[in-house]
Amino acid sequence: MKTRYSYGGDEHIFVEMDEEMSLDAFFKSLAMSNAIKDADIDGVREICPANASFQVRYDPDVIAPEDMLAKLKEMEEKAINAEKRLQTRIIEVPVFYQDPWTHECVMRFRERHQDPSGTDLDYAARINGYDSVGAFIEAHHSAPWFVSMVGFVSGLPFLYQLVGRDKQIEVPKYLKPRTDTPKQTVGYGGCFSCVYSVRGAGGYQMFGITPMTIFDADQKVSYLKDFMVFFKPGDIVKWKPIDRAEYDRILKAVENGTYKPRIAEVTFDLEDFNADMDGTNAKLMEALNDV
């Protein structure tokens, strides 16, 4: 990993931990952005952590760009020694794979796709070496995921699968972004899964849809009363495949205010995970299954 610093115009500094995605890069970025938050530097306006990078927005009338840069570099030392352990939560997110709504959208934007002859799932399964769409879907939901960034629009989570590099799924983004994506589509681009929090433009491949609302500006949804955005970086997600009947039932429960997402408090330690991925994931699942 080699840290790279760059100005983004006169109001931002962008810090990239690594060009590649890894949990090590994520944890270093998180540690650095937390250290900057704790340092409470005069002139810092916003800190945005991302997958393997972060960005600071500052007011150059309060702190000169080169002074801001020097402060950020000081933080790197602290971040290297920071504990790579998170008190977090694991959440079960129901997914209706191959649903009619994303399927309609998949077909509507076929000419913008790498392979117009099939579906996004056919394509993703094939280029990742799976014999069938079913086997590919199973790989997508069998191991849990880690929320490594929240952003794009309105609280959209980017998720990185908790498996070794050899088991990671990778797909390109659409050749030309779509102008439409159904709300709550479960998508995929690069090595990241995502949930489209609202309807709108998008370039990720579309695999399915969740009935679980994850952004509510009016904060009427029972589990979004404290804040309108559901996910935060560090959350762990387990997709649960569901059928149409279950989808309809959950959708109704969210609307009625009776849906309670299945959540367990857990600790995630990066070194433990790197030492034993299957064992760590099994413990995470035990915590979730105890709920």
């Binding site: 983004g8 931002h12 962008f14 393997a52 952003g151 980017f158 690069g190 990241f192």
Partner: peptide
């Protein structure tokens, strides 16, 4: 790898 964007 998806990262943050600066305004402008």
């Amino acid at each position: 790898v998806d990262g943050c964007y600066s305004y402008g």
